[in-house]
Nucleic acid binder design. Sequence first.
DNA 1: ACAATAGTGTCTATGAGACAATATGGT
DNA 2: ACCATATTGTCTCATAGACACTATTGT
Lengths: 221, 221
Amino acid sequence: MLLFLTVDVVLLTLKQDQLYVGLVQRLNKDEPFYGVWTLPGGFVRPQEDNEARDTAIRVLRTKAGVESPYLEQLATFSGNARDPRGWSASITYYALVNEQISANSQERLRWEPVDEVLAAPMPFDHKELLMAAVARLRSKTSYSSLPLHLMPSSFTLSELRRVYEVVLGGKLEPRGFARRVMEQDFVEEVGIDKGEAHRPARLFRAKKSAPLYIEGTFCVL
Amino acid sequence: MLLFLTVDVVLLTLKQDQLYVGLVQRLNKDEPFYGVWTLPGGFVRPQEDNEARDTAIRVLRTKAGVESPYLEQLATFSGNARDPRGWSASITYYALVNEQISANSQERLRWEPVDEVLAAPMPFDHKELLMAAVARLRSKTSYSSLPLHLMPSSFTLSELRRVYEVVLGGKLEPRGFARRVMEQDFVEEVGIDKGEAHRPARLFRAKKSAPLYIEGTFCVL
DNA sequence: ACAATAGTGTCTATGAGACAATATGGT
DNA sequence: ACCATATTGTCTCATAGACACTATTGT
């Protein structure tokens, strides 16, 4: 084969105030890096997949047990140097899931802290893919509601702020954060979080109404 | 062939205060849309092209006569619906050139106003590609020095502002514009533009020092 | 002097950051 | 009452927009 086309997915979630990436084990003895834990990916199957996004969805479902997360195309990495088998192109997506979904993922999926994964060697050019995904998430986080996809079905403002802090890597002013969230109007109140030894917090959920991004297009809120 | 991999390039320039896109005529009788003017593109040649970016550069050089413009990967468009020949993926780039370069381009390249091209039918999903490129340019323009690549080797502040206005589609305050440009420090003075019936303007050029983007990564100035 | 465009001073409204003050439930 | 976290008030400072003013050249 002269050239092959794959899709890889950088699956990200948040656990214990840390960014985690989902890895699967390579189980085909005829392929490179047998047994190694890597980003889920697979060949495009023109018969089954109407487009590359469908490949990403199929890979997530079959290899990671994850359904319909937030999924966005990241970039395409290509060339003769990235895979020992020859010239290849990987249309790379990144996906965001919340902790519930990540907890329900298959056995075959293992979650590791992004920092640790980046510190160790990774096969192919997967380190580059992972860094690009994290950079994209970071950059969009600073001006959008993207991190909502990392949140459980309901959450307090403090929890949301904490997630922004983890992704952006720094403290945020509670006052300013609350202001922005309320102005931007991408959450709605759903109740009260009673039961702890302090003032109860209001619970919110993401508003359905606001589609955040158009595929491939950069779109400021 | 089950699946084929191409690279298309949306080549943009500015003429007479309007965005123009570069089109080439399809000259292969065995391919669809023979004779039609379309975005320059071509098959990836694994033997010659170390990566997809090299394909883009080769396409630009051989089909459009354009050398080393600003070139950035846009997105990959794929699927069985976009090309009558079957499942295809187009790794799409966009390129920015200034008026000098666009004037030196080959015979085979024809420049058309983006508005007019979008108003008429386009082959494949090229309308989508073109719209994505323009959207990307617009969006980056609002917070970066990207439009410098559309400028001649030296220019006045007014000319630069005019380009921003054309790309963004609206008037900009001369005062605020000058302030931002000077603060951001991405131009340097190279002389004076004498010879007209009014106060001469200072001439600037883009500073070499400032690489604007890392491929595939979003990077705020 | 006048026309025409370049470039600057500066007032004001808006928004972000800082931080203090108040609110509310459990113990 | 006290602790802990939630939520809000508000001061200050930086920045962006508006707009008028000054600068400089050719005619």
